[in-house]
Amino acid sequence: MDVTHEVIRVLEDVLSLKGRSTSFSRETPLLGAVPELDSMAVVSLLTTLEERFGIVIDDGDINGETFRTVGTLVDFVNEQLATSA
C-alpha cells in the first residue's frame, strides 16, 4: 500500500479539493494553508484515516505538527500503522 498516495486521496475526498490534490507532494503545507481544513474537517480526516487504514488513533498523539504538511501527516499514519501492526 502506497501510504502517501492513500493519504492524498483521503485529503482530496474529505476536503472536496476538486482535483487540487494532484499537485500535492510531501512538502505541501496543510494547516493554515488549505482553507478547507477546519475543525470539522480535521475530525473527518482522522475518522476517515482510521477507517481507510484500519488504525485506532489516540487523540493524545495528535498535535499541530501532525497536520503541518502532507509529509508529516503521512509519517504520522506510518507510525500508527507500525504500532497497530
Partner: peptide
C-alpha cells in the same frame, strides 16, 4: 469519540491543544 474530537480539533487549530483533552 468522533463528536468529542471536534473540540480537541478546534483547540488544535487554535494552537492550544493539550494532551488528553478528550479524556
Amino acid at each position: 469519540q468522533h463528536f468529542l474530537r471536534l473540540k480537541s480539533a478546534g483547540e488544535l487549530l487554535a494552537g492550544s491543544a493539550s494532551r488528553g483533552s478528550v479524556d
